[in-house]
Measured scan of single mutants.
Amino acid sequence: GATAVSEWTEYKTADGKTYYYNNRTEESTWEKPQELK
Score class of each variant (00 low, 15 high):
T3Q: 14
E7Q: 06
Y11E: 07
P33D: 02
T25W: 03
K12P: 03
K37R: 13
K12Y: 09
G16R: 00
E35K: 04
W30M: 09
W30D: 09
E7K: 04
T18M: 04
Q34R: 06
K12L: 12
R24F: 15
A14Q: 09
Q34W: 10
D15H: 04
P33R: 00
E27K: 07
T3W: 04
T25P: 01
G1S: 13
K32G: 04
W8Q: 01
K32Y: 07
T29K: 06
G1D: 12
Y21H: 07
Y21L: 03
P33A: 01
E7L: 05
R24E: 09
R24P: 03
E27P: 00
N22H: 02
Y21E: 04
E7Y: 07
T25Q: 01
Q34A: 15
T9G: 08
S6D: 10
E27S: 04
P33S: 01
Y20R: 00
V5S: 12
Q34G: 10
W8E: 00
A4T: 14
T29A: 07
T18H: 06
E10F: 02
W8V: 01
T18Q: 04
E27T: 05
T18C: 13
A14H: 10
K32N: 06
W30Q: 08
S28F: 15
L36I: 10
T9M: 11
V5L: 13
N23T: 14
Y11D: 03
N22A: 00
K12D: 03
W8Y: 02
K12F: 10
G1F: 11
K37I: 15
P33W: 02
Y20K: 00
E10H: 02
W8H: 00
K12A: 06
E31M: 05
K32V: 12
Q34K: 09
P33L: 02
A4Y: 04
K32W: 04
R24N: 10
T29E: 03
G1W: 08
N23M: 10
T13M: 05
G16N: 04
T25I: 01
Q34Y: 10
T3Y: 05
T3L: 12
V5M: 12
Y19R: 05
K17Q: 09
S6T: 11
S28T: 15
K17C: 15
Y19M: 09
Y21T: 04
G16P: 00
A14D: 09
K17E: 10
G16T: 00
A14P: 13
T9N: 08
Y19I: 13
R24A: 11
W30R: 06
G1E: 11
W30S: 08
G16Q: 02
R24I: 15
K12S: 07
S6I: 08
E35L: 04
E35A: 08
T9P: 01
V5W: 11
N22L: 01
K32P: 09
D15Y: 05
T13V: 02
S28K: 15
R24V: 15
Y21A: 01
D15T: 08
D15V: 02
N22Q: 02
K17M: 07
A2C: 15
E7G: 09
D15Q: 04
A2T: 12
E10N: 00
K32Q: 09
K37H: 15
A4Q: 13
T9L: 10
P33G: 02
D15W: 06
S6R: 09
Y21M: 03
R24Q: 11
W8P: 00
A2E: 13
K12H: 11
A4S: 12
Y19F: 11
K17F: 06
K17G: 05
S6Q: 11
T29P: 01
A14G: 06
E35D: 11
Y11T: 06
E35N: 09
Y20W: 15
K17I: 07
G16S: 01
E7S: 05
K17R: 14
Y19P: 03
S6M: 08
S6V: 09
Y20A: 00
E27L: 05
L36A: 09
Q34N: 15
A2G: 12
R24D: 08
Y21P: 03
E31N: 05
S6L: 10
K37D: 15
Y11V: 14
W30A: 07
W8N: 01
T25H: 01
T18V: 11
K37W: 12
N23Y: 11
W8T: 00
E35R: 04
T13K: 03
N22G: 00
T13H: 03
L36Y: 10
W8K: 01
K37Q: 15
A14K: 12
Y20T: 00
K32A: 08
N22W: 01
K32I: 12
G16W: 00
Y11K: 14
W8R: 01
Y11S: 05
T29L: 08
T29I: 09
G16F: 00
L36R: 06
T9R: 09
T25V: 02
Y20G: 00
W8I: 02
A2L: 14
R24T: 11
A14N: 08
T3H: 13
G16H: 02
W8G: 01
Y20M: 00
L36G: 08
E10T: 06
T29G: 03
E31Y: 07
P33Y: 02
K37P: 09
A4V: 14
V5P: 12
S28H: 14
Y11L: 15
P33E: 03
S28M: 15
Y11A: 07
E35T: 05
T9I: 14
T9Q: 10
E35S: 10
Y21N: 02
T13Y: 03
T3P: 13
G16M: 01
W30L: 08
R24K: 10
K17W: 05
W8A: 01
N22T: 00
T25N: 02
Q34P: 15
N23H: 15
E31D: 11
Y19E: 04
S28L: 15
L36H: 09
T3E: 13
Q34V: 13
N22I: 00
K17Y: 09
N22E: 02
A14V: 12
Q34T: 12
S6F: 07
E31R: 04
K37T: 14
L36S: 06
A4G: 11
N22M: 01
W30V: 07
G1Q: 13
T9V: 15
E31T: 07
Q34H: 10
D15E: 09
E31V: 10
W30K: 05
E7C: 07
D15F: 04
V5E: 14
E10Q: 06
N23D: 10
S28D: 03
G1T: 13
T13G: 07
K17A: 06
S6G: 12
E31P: 03
N22R: 00
N23A: 14
K37F: 12
G1H: 13
D15G: 06
S6P: 11
V5Y: 12
K12G: 02
K12N: 06
K12W: 06
Y11G: 05
E35H: 09
T13A: 07
R24L: 15
E35P: 05
P33K: 01
T13P: 00
A4E: 12
Y11I: 14
G1R: 13
E27V: 08
A4D: 14
E31Q: 08
T13Q: 04
N23G: 06
L36K: 06
E10M: 05
Y19D: 03
T13W: 01
T3D: 13
W30Y: 11
E7A: 07
N23F: 10
S6K: 08
P33Q: 03
N22P: 02
Y11Q: 09
T25L: 04
T29V: 14
E10S: 04
L36V: 09
E31S: 05
T3R: 12
W8M: 00
T25E: 02
A14L: 09
